[in-house]
Simulated assay, not measured.
Amino acid sequence: MKRVVLFLLTNLAVMLVLGVVLSIIFAVFGISSRSMGGILTIAAVFGFGGAFISLAMSKWIAKRSTGAYVIEHARTDTEQWLMATVAEQAQQRGIKMPEVAIYDSPEINAFATGPSKNNALVAVSSGLLHNMTKDEAQAVLAHEVSHVANGDMVTLTLIQGVVNTFVIFLAKVLAGVVDNFLSGNEEESGPSWTYFLFDMLFQILFGVLASVVVAYFSRKREYAADRGAAELVGANKMRAALERLKGNRESQLEGSMMAFGIASGRSIGELFASHPPLDARINALK
C-alpha cells in the first residue's frame, strides 16, 4: 500500500509540474495545442520530462519505497564489508563511491539507481546477505556497480523518453484522425470524447509495443553488467551468483529498480522481460 500511495503521489506531482511547464511554453511561443507542433511539444514534454524527473527522483523513491537503510557509519562486520567492497569496485571503475543501503526483503536481490554515475545508490536485500556466500554477494555488487559505471540509468532514461514521445505523439495524431472521420470533419471548439477515448486506447497499444523496445535494451544492459562484474571479480563468481538465483523467489522490486536489479520479476513473455533467462546469462559468461 505504501508503494501504491507513493507511486500515485509522485506521478501526480510530476503531471502537475509538466502541466505548468507546458502552459508556459505554449504561452511564450504562441503554440496551438491542436497543431502538429503543439502535439509534438506535448509529447516531448511529457515523454522526456516524465522520464528525467523520475530519474532525478530515483534515489529518493527507491529509499522510501523499499524502506532501505543507508549505511553512513558501519555498525557491523557485514556493513563494513559491504562498504569496503563497493568502494573498491567503484575505484576500479573510476566512479565516485555510491551510497550503500540494505533493505528488508526475503528475496535474493540488489539494485542500483541514481541520476548519474557519480550520484548513485547500490542497495542489497537482507535475503541476499543471508543466502549468498561472500563471493556470490561480491559478484552481485560488481554487477550493480557495473550498471552505474556503464551509465545504464541515463541510457535507459533516454530510450524511455524517446519511446514515450513517439507513443504520445502517434496516439494523439491518430486519435485526431479517427475523431475527424467520425465527426465528419466538423469544426469543434475542442476535442470530443471520442478523441480522448481513442487517444487513451492508442497510448495503451503503442505503450505495449514500446515496452518491448525498452525491455530489449534492458536485457542488453544486463549482459553488459554481467560482463563488467566478471571483469571485476571473475566469471566464476558471477556464474555462481546467477546459479544461486535459480532458487530465488520472484522479485518484488518495481520500475527502474527491477530493471537494474540482479534478479528479474514476473513477465508475460520473454519479449517483455527486463532480464534475459538465467541460463542464457550463465552461458554468455562461459
Rank of each mutant, 00 (worst) to 15 (best):
Thr113Lys: 11
Gly114Ser: 09
Gly114Tyr: 10
Gly114Val: 08
Ser116Met: 04
Lys117Arg: 15
Asn118Asp: 15
Asn119Leu: 04
Ala120Met: 10
Leu121Ser: 04
Leu121Asn: 01
Val122Phe: 02
Val124Asp: 06
Ser125Cys: 03
Ser125Ile: 03
Ser126Asp: 11
Gly127Thr: 02
Leu128Tyr: 04
Leu128Ser: 12
His130Cys: 00
Met132Pro: 00
Lys134Ala: 06
Lys134Leu: 10
Asp135Asn: 14
Asp135Thr: 13
Val140Gln: 03
Val140Met: 13
His143Ala: 02
Glu144Ile: 13
Ser146Lys: 06
His147Asn: 02
His147Lys: 01
Val148Arg: 04
Asn150Met: 04
Gly151Ser: 10
Gly151Pro: 06
Gly151Phe: 03
Asp152Trp: 07
Thr155Gly: 02
Leu156Ser: 02
Leu158Arg: 13
Gly161Met: 09
Asn164Tyr: 12
Phe169Gly: 11
Leu170Tyr: 05
Leu170Pro: 01
Leu170Lys: 00
Ala171Thr: 02
Asp179Ala: 12
Asn180Met: 12
Leu182Gly: 11
Asn185Val: 09
Glu187Lys: 13
Gly190Val: 04
Leu197Gly: 14
Leu197Glu: 12
Phe202Val: 13
Gln203Asn: 08
Ile204Tyr: 10
Gly207His: 08
Val212Met: 15
Phe217Tyr: 14
Arg219Asp: 07
Arg221Ile: 04
Asp226Gly: 05
Asp226Phe: 02
Arg227Gln: 15
Gly228Phe: 05
Glu231Gly: 09
Glu231Ser: 14
Ala235Gly: 06
Asn236His: 14
Asn236Trp: 11
Met238Lys: 11
Ala241Pro: 05
Glu243Thr: 13
